[in-house]
Amino acid sequence: MTQSVFFAIFSGLTLVTAGIVALNQNLIRAAFALFFCLFAVAGVYVTLGGDFVAMVQLMVYAGGVAILLTFGAMLTADVSQPSGSNLNFQGVWAMIGGVSFFSVLYYVLEETQWPLKGTNYLDPTTKELGKLLLKDYLLPFEVISFLLLIAMVGAVYLVLKGEQE
């Protein structure tokens, strides 16, 4: 019961803030709405039994990526003219296209028979996830860490290259 209430709250917050991200004309406001959207998705993860993933989502997404995107918006957009920095090419057609795309997805997921199993996993997951990451998924784990290193080096190189020219 409590789970359903929190799920409703967080999923509603997710959709509303995602709508603000997509529709608001001010890029800075969209960035802050994105922060709340990622926060609400972390709440949804908690109600789906993923406590560790929710914490990672909070730290990496809400604490890292959202702040990074806010900085990016402030560094690149014309801050003195923030309205109109988030414009669409074709607003009406985008709305029609988005609604029809969502309708197709919704039709597919309502028509499909998903295999449901009753055993919902609600124990603390950190220990089991650690075992999985260091046993079954060791190779993807190492590849991901290497990818993060390469991404870091590449980002520094890209920004420095722009500075030298």
Partner: peptide, 21 residues
């Protein structure tokens, strides 16, 4: 909910003018 997020993200990806958006 996931499909809604996906549709919004796809439309933003297609129609936005600003790279950050």
């Amino acid at each position: 909910i996931s499909a809604g997020l996906f549709a919004l993200g796809t439309m933003m990806f297609v129609v936005k003018k600003n790279l950050i958006a």
